[in-house]
Amino acid sequence: MRRFKRLLPRGRTLVTTVPYLWLLLFFLVPFVIVLKISFSQSAIAMPPYEPLLHWASEKMLQVQLNLGNFAFLVEDNLYWKSYLNSIFVAGVSTLLCLLIGYPMAYAMARSNPSTRNILLLLAVLPFFTSFLLRVYAWIGLLKNNGLVNNALMAMGVIDEPIQMLQTDFAVYIGMVYSYLPFMLLPLYSNLEKMDLTLLEAAADLGCKPWQAFVKVTLPLSLPGVIAGCLLVFIPAVGEFVIPSLLGDPGMLMIGKVLWTEFFNNRDWPVASAVAIALLLFLVLPIMYLDRAQNAANEEGERT
């Protein structure tokens, strides 16, 4: 098909152009604008920033690059701490997702084919239900007089409620809960494709089951692990909803900082600078993810 499309340059160009233009206009160009605004001065106006370009005199166009916003990010350790904390929280959440997701995906992939479909359905079903409502459900569970505390008290494990809501613990719960499907799916599809005779071959060559797992299954599932981790980690770094609903109001997360700068402080230039700094950090993982996905697709094409 790729070859015969060459015979039809016009149709091919049209098919490529439409989604390409859409993505350029609504995904790439916006970043350029964010970059531009991150260099401009905040102002009390609508929109609340000053233009970068000035007509200084009749013929001279002057560019005013304002690095102040970035300097601000560096100076104020609120931003630093938020970045580091977000990365830390996202990293821990990714690890937790992996620890829970791997055994689940493994068990799903190794169950018999008819249950496998049902399990897969069960795994993606939450994906189709509202993310916001699922986070909300945890408020009801983790509150001081919520289900978990009540249950623990009824069992006599604790005498008085533990403060769980508005703690980091609640945020991790929410993160793992919301992002688990993103870990499960790539892992499952990787493990399911694996040729089971490889394990038999390993056993035949003298590997104990756990050795076969460590030496065959684990290395072969590495692409799935990497894809799953990136799919969880990248969006988790900028997560806003979970920390604001479940976390301590003072918890420093960069997504919340950006939201606050934008909606509460109405400081668009600083919000843009925060976004650019976050983006710079995430560009490499995103590129890596894209490459990994292309590689996986090519493999799919070959088989």
Binding site: V34, I234, V237, G238, G255, W259, A275, P285, I286, M287
Partner: peptide
């Protein structure tokens, strides 16, 4: 890259931009 990035891009960034 443009088709992959929106999948993982933190929503605050996409929204703001």
């Amino acid at each position: 890259g443009l088709t992959t990035a929106p999948l993982v891009m933190p929503e605050v960034i996409t929204g703001l931009s």
